[in-house]
Write a protein that binds this DNA or RNA. Sequence first.
RNA 1: GGCCCGUUCGUCUAUCGGUUAGGACACCAGGUUUUCAACCUGGGAAGAGGGGUUCGACUCCCCUACGGGCUGCCA
Length: 485
Amino acid sequence: MVSEGLIVMESTGSPRPQGSEVVTRFAPSPTGYLHIGGARTALFNWLYARGRGGKFLLRIEDTDRERSTPEATAAILRGLTWLGLDWDGEPISQFARRDRHAEVAYQMLARGAAYKCFSTQEEIEAYREQARAEGRSTLFQSPWRDADPASHPDAPFVIRMRAPRDGETLVQDAVQGSVTFRNDQLDDMVCLRSDGTPTYMLAVVVDDHDMGVTHVIRGDDHLNNAARQTMVYQAMGWPVPVWAHIPLIHGPDGKKLSKRHGAVGLEEYQAMGYPAAGMRNYLARLGWSHGDDEFFTDAQAKAWFDLGQIGRAPARLDFKKLESVSGQHIAATEDAALLHETEAFLAAAGRPALSPGQREGLSQALYCLKDRAKTFPELIEKAHFVLASRPIEPDPAAAKSLDLVSRGILAELTPQLQSASWDRETLEGIVAQVAEAHGMGLGKIAGPLRAALAGRTVSPSVFDMMLVLGRAETLARLGDTAGPA
RNA sequence: GGCCCGUUCGUCUAUCGGUUAGGACACCAGGUUUUCAACCUGGGAAGAGGGGUUCGACUCCCCUACGGGCUGCCA
């Protein structure tokens, strides 16, 4: 699924008919890791398209040559892949399509929808400076907007949109509702820079149009841009897509999510051991709802997801809830799949891989492990009894329960296990008997037993451990502990 | 400064003019219990503030406060 190769899309000069198929896209800038907020945006686009039999495309907005890196692109694709968001076709490089963007800019010029502006950046800065000083709008009003082409100097120029100055532009947003902007609040944005490269504002529109994108689902920091982009669509006579501007995700303190909140990159969540399914569920639920449903499968999410149910207020990240949802997904995952995911986590986290024996043991133990773990590290910690090999070294807490008396009891228990039928009922009966003989409850004997078998004070049920370990290993571990006493 | 968006329990949210404002996570108390987890029962916990409209507002309108976004030859 992951391909590092970006292709250039074939450009179609004419408007494409709006089909009934839904086409969404995720368009990240490759300037770093995949942001958790971006991941959610991608998820929403994916859910919307996949739930409707549509297409989910990927476009890398790499027109900022200063900040774009192939490493970042790779990281983003890796993140999406881990999250389980598969995209259709090859990722498209926006930069590679610059000729097409320029072509459209000149078409706009030819149509009179744009004009050449020879103002230098210094002149513009001076204009703004003065406007600010005079308390006027700082929107730049180019003197070249209505200039006679005959007066054009032989100098570098940018191509600006000839935006309407009267009336207003309506953005019909599936999430935000109808939002109108007065046209005099919008300036003549630059479409083509003086070096001939396209600006984002032009490139998005051209690409979304050429890619046949029907629904633009993105962060609400683009809501204002939608108005200006609408003008480009109108200037070119292209159908305007359905807009859906979703609120950003904030940190637990309600402030914009940033590095100081800890985990911002999706890969950090992967490293912390959250299962991808839990991540999808949690992220989908963040800002979107389907009644009171909290835990759901991908199939349900795809069937239920809709733009109208997306909230308009920014949501905060809540790790406790993420954990809870993740735990439910781990518990609901089939053993075989869970084993694979656990191994993938180990690899991603740079931890040692499982030996064949550990692998086998873990797969036997998952049934009694998955209900008690919220993350993979927790699962692995609780699987210590099956991952460790003799002699079991008890940790300090476990060692405490292995005093002389306890060892004596274990020594007494061991021979009785020798000939026992190895099933839960029998084992429980024997252990209960021994406990009773000493006038103690099961709890008193379970502690030392747990310590001897797992070397930990936290593990699955002692009976589950005995069943998973088998008679020989159980007796051997008990012998290791009880013997020297 | 201008324009735009937002504001229901601590958090995520339900409600789309009439509910004792519901659920989930978290929290507290109790229960079950071989640890952890899970599970069961119960509990506290919300409509930013102020004006309207209406028989009736969380819901519609206005103002204020607070938060966020845009205002680039960044995306």
